[in-house]
Design a protein around this nucleic acid. Structure first.
Ligand SMILES: NC(=O)c1ccc[n+]([C@@H]2O[C@H](COP(=O)([O-])OP(=O)(O)OC[C@H]3O[C@@H](n4cnc5c(N)ncnc54)[C@H](O)[C@@H]3O)[C@@H](O)[C@H]2O)c1
Ligand SMILES: NC(=O)c1ccc[n+]([C@@H]2O[C@H](COP(=O)([O-])OP(=O)(O)OC[C@H]3O[C@@H](n4cnc5c(N)ncnc54)[C@H](O)[C@@H]3O)[C@@H](O)[C@H]2O)c1
Lengths: 209, 209
DNA sequence: GGGAGAATGTTAAAATTATAACAAGCCTTT
DNA sequence: AAAGGCTTGTTATAATTTTAACATTCTCCC
């Protein structure tokens, strides 16, 4: 639909991976097609919202029938850019960082950690799965050489801002931040915060409401 | 303000921990008061939104002056229910679960993991910090005995729904779910999803938009 | 003690997001 | 091949959330 440009809300983008995971699940059960109605029931979402989200990007459905599961999964992958491998660097190979490395290995996903870095001498050279911890000095060159655009930040909060600055300077365009603080980054760099403590605190509210 | 009852949006509740962390930071620098203006600059939020969020719960500010940092932090803690310790159980002591246990120890927070459980015999009895892995058989009794209302779920996705059911049956009221699937839980149980893969996939979109 | 300046709480407006309604279109069945 | 039954994409409506505006009131300082 080569009409006019429109801004796509973040909230829509964040639902796409949910749709995608669901579709992959259907594929495992060899389901061929699915309606927005059915998706709505299974995902606890309004069917109209699902149709609207998808129609932003194109006409993927078949009237009277629904969506072809495999095809829609492919389309969403395309939209998100998951059809090519997306290389990731992880900085801060502590408790959490190490868990993320190991997890990465059995995950069949386009997003893949290809380099891990740490500032502490004792960590350098340690092996996590197929990845060896590199020193921070190599970060910039590695990022540029491998055209890495996405980073995971898992250092303590005190180090996080300076690591963020280094990542930005190296050319990183998006950061998944696990450190419990608000990173300051330029507007063209997207930061997503995964703060467990905040999540737990928000949940705590609902224990007495 | 004993006026009429109002529903408080989730999005407001999720901002409260952000405010709280910021206030604690100010306390470290011995800042005594702060204006919504200043908070807005530091947190990248609209000052009006901050004032509105806070005014839902009471009149915490002083006109012409702003908010007393210590007092506001105390109020927000109160609202979230963080003035008493909130006990948590964690199920699934694998890579991620173990990292969360260890993290828990140095975190000065009201939310505290007090029991960890795993379904695999080889894990039972393992020590993680001060916590020893317990068998699933003890889950229900432990939850009820310690009046635990909040759980962290960190099992593989295949096991997650049945663990969720067990948690709900035991009386858990809120779950932070790390498994990449949509849990089905009754309406009185709140589920918050912390899915790293989905986060990364959403970020991927912005690498080519 | 009074006036200037500042920042709140609140009311009003704008923007965004979600839901509902429905015409158009595709598939299946007869 | 035509009808009937679904289900989409889209347009319209509703709800929520954000931002702006401003009267009120508190502090500070003279
Ligand atoms: N572990 C968890 O379960 C958990 C949960 C929620 C949040 N977090 C947050 O995630 C982050 C990591 O947590 P963790 O438990 O893995 O901490 P950790 O202390 O185990 O690991 C941090 C790692 O970062 C490295 N590091 C420190 N300064 C660095 C720098 N300037 N440059 C590069 N590397 C540096 C350290 O050497 C260490 O290996 C922290 O910000 C923590 O608050 C952790
Ligand atoms: N490790 C990561 O960095 C990471 C990142 C994102 C998401 N996740 C998700 O978090 C979850 C845990 O990941 P992980 O890497 O720690 O996995 P893991 O395999 O290392 O650990 C899973 C643990 O759950 C236990 N378990 C399995 N079935 C159980 C059952 N029925 N009852 C109780 N315990 C049971 C296992 O014994 C194991 O100890 C997974 O769902 C994974 O997809 C992990």
């Amino acid at each position: 639909m080569p009409g006019k440009m429109q801004r796509i809300p973040d909230v829509v983008i964040r639902r796409l991976p949910v749709y995608l995971r669901y579709l992959h699940q259907l594929q495992e059960y060899e389901v061929e097609t699915v309606s927005s109605q059915q998706m709505g029931v299974d995902l606890n979402l309004n069917p109209a919202q699902i149709r609207k989200d998808l129609s932003i990007f194109g006409d993927f459905g078949i009237k009277g029938m629904g969506y072809k599961v495999a095809e829609l999964a492919e389309q969403i992958s395309e939209i998100l850019g998951l059809n090519k491998e997306i290389p990731i660097v992880l900085v801060g190979v502590g408790n959490l960082g190490a868990a993320l490395c190991r997890y990465n290995r059995y995950q069949e996903s386009a997003t893949k950690i290809i380099g891990i870095f740490d500032g502490h001498p004792s960590k350098i050279g340690q092996q996590h799965g197929s990845l060896e911890v590199r020193p921070m000095e190599e970060l910039t060159e590695f990022v540029q050489q491998h055209k890495v655009k996405l980073a995971i930040l898992a250092t303590p909060p005190a180090a996080a801002q300076s690591v963020c600055d280094a990542l930005v300077a190296a050319g990183i365009k998006a950061i998944l931040n696990f450190a419990p603080l608000l990173l300051q980054a330029p507007p063209h760099v997207r930061v997503s915060n995964a703060d467990v403590t905040s999540e737990l605190q928000a949940l705590a509210y609902y224990l007495h409401g």
